[in-house]
């Protein structure tokens, strides 16, 4: 399938005006597949880490949401151990007016504000609700262990 004008424009803009703390670049041989890196937001348990994700634009894009998944292990109540993300705009709240940029910004925001009341990883969410301090410590530990670039 030919790459739509929209995907070309979006890609150009992502490269020329990158979002702070987010990088996204398509593969050379598949311009619908993006390698994404999001740095952990400051004052979050993920601060200091760099999280790698994959993002794929299906043939239905932009009528259907892109497929996004964490590749880096992360301790977060809305992200499961396969890296799948529970985020409304990736599901029923998707609008064709949203873009790769807005999706990645929403994921970054999710890192700053975990929502244990709408969990994907139940055990993590339970931990978060019963002992937030301890859960945050685990998240920090995981960040150091798996998302540390040094």
């Amino acid at each position: 399938m030919m790459l739509s004008k929209r995907i070309v424009k979006e890609t150009q803009r992502l490269m020329s005006e990158p979002v702070p703390g987010i990088s996204a670049s398509p593969l050379n041989d598949n311009l619908r597949y993006f390698n994404v890196a999001i740095s952990g937001p400051v004052e979050s348990p993920f601060e200091g880490g760099v999280f790698h994700l994959e993002l794929f634009l299906t043939d239905d894009y932009p009528m259907a949401a892109p497929k996004v998944r964490f590749l880096t292990k992360i301790y977060h109540p809305n992200i499961d151990k396969l890296g799948r993300i529970c985020l409304d705009i990736l599901k029923d709240k998707w609008s064709p007016a949203l873009q790769i940029r807005t999706v990645l910004l929403s994921i970054q925001a999710l890192l700053s504000a975990p929502n244990p009341d709408d969990p994907l990883a139940n055990d993590v969410a339970e931990h978060w609700k019963s002992n937030e301090k301890d859960a945050i410590a685990t998240a920090r530990d995981w960040t150091k262990r798996y998302a540390n670039t040094q």
Partner: peptide, 22 residues
């Protein structure tokens, strides 16, 4: 394309504008 997709998902009168959160 948008309306076609929404109809096939079973929506009709409840269909809203294609902009986000509109």
């Amino acid at each position: 394309t948008y309306v076609e997709g929404k109809i096939s998902e079973g929506e009709s009168i409840s269909m809203t504008c294609l902009a986000y959160k509109c």
